[in-house]
Nucleic acid binder design. Structure first.
Lengths: 237, 237
DNA sequence: TCTTTGCTAATGTATATACAAGCTGTACTC
DNA sequence: GAGTACAGCTTGTATATACATTAGCAAAGA
């Protein structure tokens, strides 16, 4: 492996393991150069690439620091429903319908990479915007990676928020489809049985395996998923 | 502006203007260093950053070349329905329902940034996968930027393909929602009026303005939108 | 006490150089 | 003619050096 990659690896470990939390200072270019017995330009390259990847932020005159985790997936943000509602200056509140441990069905076991019939966390939470239900979050969580999931108070913070903190996410996959709500869903969302809903299926990974699999259902009449992208990073002229 | 930025700018112009098409060779590091009277390392930096941004591809021993445009938005791909179907080894065919010039309604005029009542291209195309309809593409195109849109044969190539070629896209925004199909849509998609559909609203920009606004409707029972992302670019160990 | 000044350390840009490693075409050999 | 060896160009990695720009702090001054 190239020398600059060793240095990146070293710093990445510190961040991923949680030893260096958000905003923790990272060794300076000169310090790394001494420590790894390389030239400053080589140490610089490692830090520069970590900065490009969004893991650290750098400020001339000040130094290099671990970037806030929430900005690490800046490109296609995994949205936190509570933040999104707050952004619109609306009021968010969550209702925990269910929080239990259940044995994993064969399908679920495959999704979460756990043994069939092993106990997994299951929660159902209804998110409201200004008193109206806008999302039902039906989530299964791997108890090996998140043993204390059931003890959290999810009326105060969202599961997404909590999971991001205890297991730094490294990977995610989404599937979006349009469905008709089940009886329970239409009751929870206070919509008619024939109203189309937007359903997002999301699995998230951390370094050690599948953390969680969630089905987020939104009423079609009260929700849109938006995205914007530009193909060019640098600014014009 | 920094020297390496000047070089980037120079190359970017060539690509954006279309003077250098896909796979066109880019001057080598040494050639650029001579041309711009800088050191090789500075020229290298310009090429390296363009490579990071996905505008060019580089191969040791061979050279630097303009990247194929379709890979320029690698992160959240703007999918081409035909490619997607081909990827599944299925058969794609398109049916052009309508191709006309219509006066822009006030709403549409706002979307496309054109004068109200000015003529714009309007096309409706049904995309089939193995004979079954999977997408209705209802598209409005800015005739100032794409004057010959109406003369293309969209049974052979998709509008997305054509638009990518004649106007290098620089920006795009999406909105996804779940809806019930209109009468015409349910007829075209051969679904019942009560089947929920996934509707994607997409606007695309090139350097000179809004190119096109499209509404893509998929039957919920036959379509899913997927995405996958990792938060770390480099590979492990 | 508040302000100014200046020092130090950190990142940002640029250069010159060296060698490693991979692709391509040419010339040579069999 | 077919295969091989090699030379030359390309990108990739690494080093040493110089100077610019900025943040933060400390000391001197009013």
């Amino acid at each position: 492996m190239a020398k600059f990659e060793n240095i990146k690896e070293h710093i990445y470990q510190k961040i991923e393991s949680g030893e260096w939390p958000e905003y923790h200072p990272v060794s300076s270019e000169n310090a790394l150069a001494n420590q790894f017995k390389v030239s400053r330009m080589t140490a610089r390259r490692a830090l520069q690439e970590l900065s490009d990847e969004g893991l650290v932020t750098r400020t001339r005159g000040s130094g290099t620091f671990v970037a806030p985790l929430k900005s690490q997936s800046a490109l296609l943000t995994i949205r936190n429903i509570a933040d999104e509602i707050a952004l619109r200056n609306h009021r968010h509140h969550a209702e925990v319908v269910c929080m239990e441990k259940v044995p994993a069905s064969p399908t679920l076991a495959t999704f979460l990479h756990v043994p069939v019939q092993s106990q997994v966390w299951h929660s159902i939470i209804i998110h409201h915007e200004n008193g109206q239900p806008v999302q039902v979050e039906d989530r299964y969580v791997n108890p090996r990676l998140v043993p204390n999931y059931g003890e959290q108070d999810f009326t105060q913070r969202t599961p997404h928020d909590y999971l991001c903190e205890v297991t730094p996410l490294t990977e995610a996959s989404h599937q979006i489809e349009a469905v008709l709500p089940s009886a329970a869903l239409s009751r929870w969302l206070k919509v008619e049985a024939l109203e189309p809903c937007l359903q997002i299926n999301r699995r998230t990974w951390c370094r050690d395996g599948v953390v969680s699999q969630a089905t987020l259902t939104h009423p079609g009449s009260r929700f849109r998923l938006g995205g914007h992208m530009t193909f060019r990073a640098s600014k014009k002229s």
